[in-house]
Design a binder for these strands. Structure first.
Lengths: 219, 219
DNA sequence: ATATCTCAAATTGGATCCAATATACAATAT
DNA sequence: ATATTGTATATTGGATCCAATTTGAGATAT
């Protein structure tokens, strides 16, 4: 048998497609905070029935991306400044540990990919791309870690504040600073200095928190 | 109006009832690892249709309590020793922070309740009760913290290893040691020593991890 | 004019039905 | 006897229908 195999049973169900699409729309800010998710409307958009939509919404609720009330439906979840701060603090606790365990496992190949993301991030002129590349840079580094639950939690935490982080990147010097910090983190990883990388990630996250909270308090 | 009010709109939906019941059955070990969850069977048990059951299962999947495969259904999720270890490490990172912020907010009333749970835990002869009281003790203390996301994550982490922790409590001196450590933690909270309480919680969790991993490696 | 009370439309929650897939077992061929 | 194929049954995924609840516009009373 020379056929290239592929696991057909792993094909996506309607509900998972809807889930992925809604999640993306929420974290990218295409659906704004407080906006209602109409099951019927979404079902029509995806040319399916409301059943998969409801399953997707219940999963989003479990992830904290939407809030639902019985007989009233789901709305995109928002965060108070205090909640935003807590999410950043959570990241500042979790992600340094991820990096610390990831550094010893980083192959040259992975570091090369990370450097590409890093460069692409700093070079990009497209605000929509910034969020993607920023995230891809972090996730590339984290992927070398074996702490899958830590990564799961970091991913969810990032999901919840992604919209705000994207807004912050657009702020004056948000991009420039992030790009500089990314380079420092990458250097530490390349040198194999896990403690330094860990510390820099922490500073990077706490710095972003400060910057975002200031931004929020001014508006 | 002298009527004691109650939010009728907050009455539980069928899917949330099923979710709660399944979650409880899983973490208490009534459903064992790898066991299949048949939608039809569960629907009959709760005298409902499969729709709410499916929503409940998809939420359980998002919580990591079951694993599902398309067209094959859901089975109760298990953990490898390595995964178990990671969950404990996660707890050892998160819960000390929760306690640290909780201690300054603990009312006398709350401390009294915590002490009751603590005493009841040490006094109980019923293994099934141990798990409940152990958890209630921790959650009582944590409830004084305002870190709701941290608590959310700790709750989920505890959910995932609850079965194993219960098994561990039954082990020789598992109960006795836990009871002793609880007292130490409670004392620190009553004295208002947040740093000490935080450190003791960390030791408590890491000690439980060691004890459980030894138990696992011997069987 | 304002507040209260219908009542129809919109929306969600749940039940029932059909389609797609997996599984187990019998039938057949080698 | 073993391996393969066909087939019936069990089970899940999804569509459609009905019931329960909310919402908002208009009617009515004060």
């Amino acid at each position: 048998m020379k056929l290239k195999s592929m696991d057909i049973s792993a094909t996506a169900s309607a509900s998972s497609i809807v889930f992925d699409a809604l999640r993306k729309a929420i974290i990218e800010g295409q659906l704004e905070e407080g906006e209602a998710l109409r099951q019927d409307e979404i079902a029509r958009l995806f040319n399916t029935s409301r059943i998969p939509v409801r399953e997707a919404i219940s999963r989003l609720q479990e992830q904290g991306l939407v809030k639902t009330k019985r007989y009233k439906g789901a709305v995109v979840a928002g965060l108070s400044p205090k909640e935003t701060e807590e999410i950043f603090d959570l990241r500042a606790l979790i992600e340094p540990e991820i990096i610390r365990t990831a550094v010893p496992n980083m192959s040259d190949e992975l570091l090369k990919v990370a450097r590409q993301k890093c460069i692409a991030f700093s070079a990009s002129k497209n605000p929509n791309e910034w969020g993607d590349l920023n995230r891809e840079f972090h996730e590339t580094l984290y992927s070398a870690s074996e702490l899958k639950f830590f990564i799961e939690i970091a991913d969810n935490a990032i999901d919840r504040i992604e919209r705000q982080v994207r807004a912050q990147l657009v702020m004056s010097n948000g991009m420039e600073r992030a790009g500089r910090e990314h380079l420092g983190i990458l250097d530490a990883c390349e040198k194999g200095d896990a403690d330094l990388a860990s510390k820099l990630i922490r500073d990077h996250i706490l710095g972003a928190k400060q910057s975002l909270l200031q931004h929020l308090s001014r508006t």
